[in-house]
Write a protein that binds this DNA or RNA. Sequence first.
DNA 1: AATAAATCTGCGAAACTATGCAGATATGCA
DNA 2: TGCATATCTGCATAGTTTCGCAGATTTATT
Lengths: 117, 117
Amino acid sequence: MPSRMVVARELGEIFKIIAHPDRIRLIEELRGEEKDVNTLAESLGLPGPRVSQHLSLLRAHRIVDERRDGRHHYYHLIQPEIADWIVDGLSFIEGKLAGISTSNIKAVRRLWASDAP
Amino acid sequence: MPSRMVVARELGEIFKIIAHPDRIRLIEELRGEEKDVNTLAESLGLPGPRVSQHLSLLRAHRIVDERRDGRHHYYHLIQPEIADWIVDGLSFIEGKLAGISTSNIKAVRRLWASDAP
DNA sequence: AATAAATCTGCGAAACTATGCAGATATGCA
DNA sequence: TGCATATCTGCATAGTTTCGCAGATTTATT
């Protein structure tokens, strides 16, 4: 079995997991610090169950992991570099982001790291 | 409208476009040189129409572009760096690739660049 | 003009994903 | 124990993507 096929299948898998705006925002929210489900649900303005489902998908694919403390479940990135890798993908979006110079990825990283609207 | 939402939506879009094994292989095939539809269909072992459909999706999202010469349509990557970025994603696949040390991404790049099975 | 090669387009069936909601667990506190 | 909080699970519906095939285009050749 051609290993390029296997590699392509695995890569396709991970791209598919990440390919959802909510999950991307979750990953970016977890950049740098762990957070619990409720906090995440509130910052993203999404219903709790939905966040929970996204998180368990991310967990099944070992993108995040969970730490329980009482009734809170804190999630964190297993490999924090993934947050940067995702944002790097912006280089390949052609001028679709009015107001954000597509060549300046660092600006977007800062945007995500900051508390700006 | 929070710009992080917009950014996440655009990123999700591009991830979704790439998130298919055939399209990933197409992009990797186009690493370094343009190729026509038939050549691509043969190397991937896929029916022509399917390759054509994948390519037009990639084209609609400005990942590839086309040059026509007679009845041949040659496709090439608009931003060749995308091929490397995609392969970088391998860092985030946890031990799913038996036989390929996940930490050694360069080996996989070589695999893709070479003609090995 | 007729034919062949290369590629594209359209369409229905099957497979997959997302969403919203209701109810199940599990934990902490009075 | 009983109640509130935090999170998870399951399910039905709606929506999207993929796939295979048939037919339409376009260009080169005879």
